[in-house]
Every structure is written in structure tokens, then in C-alpha cells.
Write a protein that binds this DNA or RNA. Structure first.
Lengths: 242, 242
DNA sequence: TCAATTTCTTGATTTCGATCAATCCGCGGT
DNA sequence: ACCGCGGATTGATCGAAATCAAGAAATTGA
């Protein structure tokens, strides 16, 4: 153990001071000492949309916090059919503690900025900070809840309901609509129509048609193919099935 | 800390000695002292198929190891559409560490025997045994992998592939077919046709038709509606998509 | 600025699985 | 044994989404 010393706010690594993950993400469990230790080995980087972050069945050497942008996790069948099995928004943690058994593929869906650190560094600090393990468990449980919620959407909802559910998911994560009396939302879609289809288990044509229908019915407006304005959130919710 | 004392095998609670969870489940992380402490508060019980174990949005007061049988986790839309979002086989741990946010419903799919302990007892021991937290994280990651694997099945596979995938899942968990050169498998279906439909995002009629087709093609045999003999596992795998 | 290419939309047709509708089978009870 | 009932199978028809097929719109690059 190092000798306990005075920790001023200025001792918090510059890198971390303005970081959202510092408070809400996994780093929130670390005291300044540990944070300094981790920050020494960590590095920020920006990657363009389409960059592969973890290849299928690849060994994983690092973990990362998503600081901005959206990362998509995909699985692919041998004949090319693809399914997005998770989306990570800031300030989600992502990477696989221990084993990399399930063949998963992580790719930047938008331009993404990451704060990544080597697997070994995190695991060492984890042994000393039980709180960190708890945060990791918390993130994993959150991912599990999201996955199960989506299983209902995939298995039991109609195409129209799937699209509405998807738009709500994005609105809640990008535009942070948690306030229930917020009537409207606006955001850029982080996914292409193809990605949306792969997320919803639909074809690109069906996605397009359902978006057109929502637009025709005045529930949303679409500008430049990417920017979506939800005119009335409760009307969208009514179409999402629940 | 208690003084370290000699621990004989006989000090392991009788309840735990023959328990599978003792080695492979969460209890494997506990030393005999901790095991005794936990065993004091735990109790075995058997429940019939159909028994509700955790109600939708109900507060959770206990955790459990599944010792035998199958527990199904379901989510239901307001209009009654249902989706099974997870199956827990022995010796899975089940229950929700912390928060019970996601509205999930757990029900015994078959006759089930459980070893359950109060939430508080487990959480207290968890603070002292970092290994236990790790096991819990491991179980959660395993559940997450399973959920994501199933998302591919729900979103991208045909009805025929879904049924084949389901039978393989059961064969691997009930008959423990992990040995890749095992050519055949046999088991009782732990789910009714209705449950299978809810697990696969299909209707009961489609499930029935696909099972009939597999039978007609000589891939499986069905006896008494419940007992399934997989004649050739590799032929079943070929139909599961991958 | 203007091809060139990719991404998205829209339309026509087909198909797979849902729905509707009878049976059929297995099982427990009297 | 017989009935009665819930669960399962089978058949006929329908419909939602997939597939096939052009185009239109946006983005890229020279």
C-alpha cells in the first residue's frame, strides 16, 4: 500500500477531470490514487464510423469507456445474416472482463471517442478496489436488462412497433429524454438504415417504409435523412407497444 | 476476522456436500466458514411446474441456486404477448443482485428444486468474499452471452432454424452434450409447446409443424409428446444455422 | 461543379409464418 | 372402461414482411 497523501482536486488526472465516466461510469468507483494509476496507462482516441474495435473471436487486450458516439455490438451467422446485439452509448463501459468466449464484434457506429486502458491494468486495480468490481457488475446487469428488453422487441413486436421502440431508445440515450413530461425530442440517428434493420431483425426496405409511415402520420419529422424530430413523444410511445 | 481454524470436510454443511452449485455455482467461491454461515440461512425447497418464483415488478427478497429442473424468465407486453428472455438450468444462480429495475417474471417450467437464501445474507457475505462477487459477475456475463446469442436467433433465423437451435440448447443443458463427437442425445422437453413458442417468438402451430417436419425427416424422434431423441446431432446442427 | 457511388425510398410480387378452424391424442378422474 | 379436458397436431386461408426491381436523394471525390 502506498502512504496515504493529501489529494487535491488538481491531483485528479487532467484527462479525467471533465470526463463523464468519472462520475457515472466505472471510474466513479476509484479514489484519486487509483484513478491516477489507471490514467497513466489509459489513452484517449477518436475513431471514425465503421472502425472495427473488437474483431470476432479476437483476443481482447483492452477495455474502454465510450466518451461520445455510439458503438454497435454485432453477431453474424456464417451466411452473412447479421444482428446487432447491443449498443453502447456514453458513458458506457465496454469490453469483456475475463473470457472472450462469445464471438462478438464491436464497431464504431458513429465517430466515437474512447478512453481505453489495457486489460491487465484494469484487472490489477480491480483486485484492490472492490467497488470497481461492483460497478462492472452493475454495467453488466444493465447490459443484460437491455438485451432482455430487446428480446421482447425482436420476438414479439411488429415492424411498426420495432421502429417506434428504436426511436424511443435513441431519444432516451442521445437526447436524454427521461423527464416524462418532455413532449418532444430531436437527434441525429447514430445508425444507417442498414444498421437499424440489423438491430430490429428487419430488412432495410421495411425500415424505410415504417419511417415513412411515421412521418406521413406526423409523429416524426426527418431532415436530411439523418436528423429526426419527434413531434410528440407520447404518440411515439403509444406506437411502441408495451 | 475470525481466527482460522481447522476445517474438515465434515464441517461443510450436509446440505451443501452433494450440491452441484458447491463446485460449479456461486458457492464454489466460499471457504467452509462462509459456506456454513450462508447455509444457516438457506433452505431447500421443491416447487411444481407453473409456480411463480418472482413476480413482475415485485420486490426481491431472496436469491437461489437452481439444483434441478428449469426456470423460465419471461417478459409480457400489456396486451398479453409474452417472450421468454432466459432459461436457468442447474446449477445456475438466479435472482437479481441489487436493483430489480427490469420487470421480469420467473416461473418454474418443470418441477424445480431450489436452494434459496435471503438477499441480505448473500450481500453481507459478498462484501467479505470478493471471489463471490466475481462468480456473480461470471454468472451475469454468462446470462448476457446467452441473451445475445438468442437475439440472433430471434432476429435473424427462420422458424426451422429456431426450432433446431432450441433443441440443441436443451440437449446441451439437459443431456450435457458438450462432447463434440457425441452423435446422439435424448431428453424430456422442459417446456410445453406454448413455452417453446414464447421462447422462439413463434406461434404454437408453427412450433408443432416444425417439430413434425424434423420428425418426418428422421432428425429426431418424439415419444409421448415430451421425450425427444436426437438421432443425429450433427444433422440437427446443420439445420440450426450458424 | 458535376459525375460516380452509396444510401434511401417506393412499388410490385412472393413467401413464410400467423390466424382461423377442426380434430386428435394422452392423461387423470369417476 | 368411458368421458372430459388441456395440450398438440393438421389443414385452409390470410396477411405482414421479405424479396425483387427501379428510381430518387444524398454524399464523395475529382
Amino acid at each position: 500500500m502506498t502512504v496515504r497523501q493529501d489529494i487535491h482536486n488538481s491531483d485528479i488526472p487532467v484527462l479525467c477531470q471533465a470526463c463523464e465516466a468519472r462520475h457515472h461510469g466505472v471510474c466513479g468507483a476509484l479514489d484519486p490514487n487509483k484513478l491516477v494509476a489507471l490514467a497513466k496507462t489509459s489513452s484517449r482516441r477518436q475513431v471514425d464510423a465503421g472502425t472495427e474495435l473488437i474483431g470476432d473471436a479476437e483476443a481482447i487486450h483492452s477495455y474502454a469507456n465510450v466518451l461520445s458516439g455510439v458503438v454497435k455490438l454485432t453477431k453474424t451467422l456464417s451466411d452473412g445474416r447479421q444482428q446487432i446485439v447491443g449498443l453502447q452509448f456514453a458513458p458506457d463501459f465496454f469490453g469483456r472482463p475475463f473470457r472472450a468466449e462469445s464471438a462478438i464484434n464491436a464497431e464504431a457506429a458513429t465517430r466515437v471517442s474512447l478512453c481505453s486502458f489495457p486489460k491487465a491494468a484494469l484487472e490489477r486495480i480491480m483486485k484492490e478496489s472492490p467497488g470497481l468490481q461492483g460497478r462492472l457488475l452493475g454495467q453488466t446487469l444493465k447490459d443484460l436488462d437491455a438485451a432482455r428488453e430487446w428480446m421482447v422487441t425482436l420476438g414479439r413486436k411488429t415492424a411498426a412497433e420495432k421502429i417506434a421502440s428504436f426511436l424511443l431508445l435513441i431519444a432516451r440515450n442521445i437526447d436524454r429524454v427521461s423527464d416524462p413530461n418532455m413532449r418532444t425530442a430531436a437527434f441525429d440517428l447514430p445508425l444507417t438504415r442498414n444498421d437499424i434493420a440489423d438491430f430490429l431483425g428487419l430488412t432495410i426496405e421495411t425500415v424505410s417504409r415504417q419511417l415513412t409511415k411515421l412521418r406521413a402520420d406526423g409523429v416524426i419529422r426527418i431532415e436530411n435523412n439523418r436528423h429526426v424530430v419527434v413531434v410528440d413523444i407520447s404518440r411515439l410511445e403509444a406506437r411502441a407497444g408495451s
